[in-house]
Design a protein around this nucleic acid. Structure first.
Length: 384
RNA sequence: GCGGCUAUAGCUCAAUGGUAGAGCUCCAGAUUGUGGUUCUGGCUGUUGCGGGUUCGAGUCCCGUUGGUCGCC
């Protein structure tokens, strides 16, 4: 299912191939985020044209709306959203911690209130796997506890122990291919790959311990979670290094929720294969485009009569057909096309970046290429 | 023509006779397992104009101009 095809001589970057039920995914890969069974502002047809090979959806959101019965009845998430390539669902762990109003965490799972209608619900490791079996994604995620970056070390320790315990239960449930109530969709177990999630905050020992415990389960892949939760960039990269060092080389590594283009290059260098991040799509909706030089705020007054495309060398639909002046006008006027064009551009940028990275690794030029890229790319302001 | 009301930031409007403000717009930022949201900053005034009263006037008085409503 996963093969490492080439490894850089100067760092841990590798080019790989991940084979799942709905196709082959070449890594390093960026996965556009489609939380509510849609990558916001773009159609599946456009995603195919952008050469997206795998996208995300979110169990938590699907579970509370429209609900599993609906998706089960409509034949699973692939058919529901008309996406025939690879699909990954997040377990809902993160959302329970970031969105739910009230929640009570016990060793068996999390009791919480829906952020939509206040309905009281429960998700634990077994529930998370069952939900994701109904949804039917190619890759499913273990149910984890994602504490805030600022949490005390004891609390992070508790989260790590729970996350490991829950991962074992998820693996059990996954292996058992249990009956799924209310589902017409029966997916053979081998068609869904379960990924474990490493927690441990900024603590080297906890990251290592968590990664080792999960590695012992011999899951098809591993994610690094508990990042993109407000930590400074350097600490984030260190957390990635701690986790990566204890993960099996032969399995894909997925950095959850990350990151900026320069951060992705840094993480590829550290051996990460898979990424998802809302930035290219979210920031597009606020009028910001990614370019090889950094971000460009398209609402800026100085662009009001600029005939140039967002980015000169870009081959995306927006850049091939429209000026900055026009796109700025659409954004200022609140027109939907503005959001769509910037989203298409940003996804084109991210997906193209990954193809370039992969080609550089394969040809042995990744070290030189990445230095050049990081030299030119001016990141957004530091977090604080 | 007569009478009433009214005139304050680009817009809509606040401000006991005591340092002219708010919302929106505009400008500049933020956003990392989603947030078309939201948040943080910033610019802008001969208070229609001319006089007067007062220690002090956006505020009170007189005149004037524009707007608006009503009446011959």
């Amino acid at each position: 299912m996963f093969e490492v095809l080439a490894t850089d001589s100067g760092c841990k970057a590798r080019a790989g191939r991940l084979t799942v039920a709905h196709g082959v995914v070449e890594t390093p890969v960026f996965m556009p985020v489609g939380t509510q069974a849609t990558v916001k502002a773009v159609s599946p047809h456009e995603l195919r044209e952008l050469q997206a090979r795998i996208i995300l959806a979110n169990s938590y959101h699907m579970f509370i709306r429209p609900g599993l019965e609906v998706i089960g009845k409509l034949g699973g998430l692939h058919r529901f959203e008309n996406w025939d390539r690879a699909l990954l669902t997040d377990s809902g762990g993160f959302q329970v911690f970031s969105l739910a109003k009230l929640r009570k965490v016990t060793d068996s799972g999390v009791h919480f209130q829906s952020h939509i209608d206040g309905q009281r619900l429960f998700i634990g490791p077994r529930e998370a796997v069952r939900i994701q079996r109904v949804l039917g994604a190619d890759i499913i995620m273990a149910f984890d506890e994602c504490p805030p970056w600022t949490a005390a070390k004891e609390d992070i320790d508790v989260a790590v122990q729970r996350t490991v315990r829950w991962a074992r239960i998820c693996a059990e449930e996954w292996a058992a291919a249990a009956e799924i109530p209310n589902s017409k969709l029966q997916i053979p177990n081998h068609q869904q790959l379960l990924f474990g999630i490493v927690q441990g905050g900024g603590c080297a020992e906890l990251r290592r311990e968590c990664a080792e415990q999960l590695a012992a389960l011999d899951l098809p892949g591993y994610a690094i979670g508990g990042v993109s939760v407000g930590e400074p960039e350097e600490e984030m990269l260190r957390a990635i290094e701690y986790a990566e060092a204890a993960l099996p080389v032969a399995k894909p590594r997925y950095a959850m929720g990350l990151g900026q283009p320069n951060q992705i290059v840094e993480m590829v260098r550290r051996g990460v294969d898979m990424f998802d991040c809302v930035l290219p799509t979210r920031v597009a909706r606020n009028g910001t485009a990614y370019t090889a030089d950094g971000t460009l705020n398209l609402k800026r007054a100085e662009l009001k009569d600029d005939p140039a495309p967002i980015e000169n060398e870009c081959g995306c639909y927006a850049c091939q057909n429209f000026s900055r002046a026009y796109i700025r006008h659409l954004l200022k006027a609140g027109e939907i096309l503005g959001l769509r064009l910037v989203t298409l551009h940003n996804l084109h940028f991210y997906l193209g970046l990954m193809r370039t990275i992969r080609a550089a690794i394969v040809s042995g030029e990744f070290g030189a290429w990445s230095r050049q890229f990081l030299e030119r790319y001016k990141p957004r302001e530091d977090y604080e």
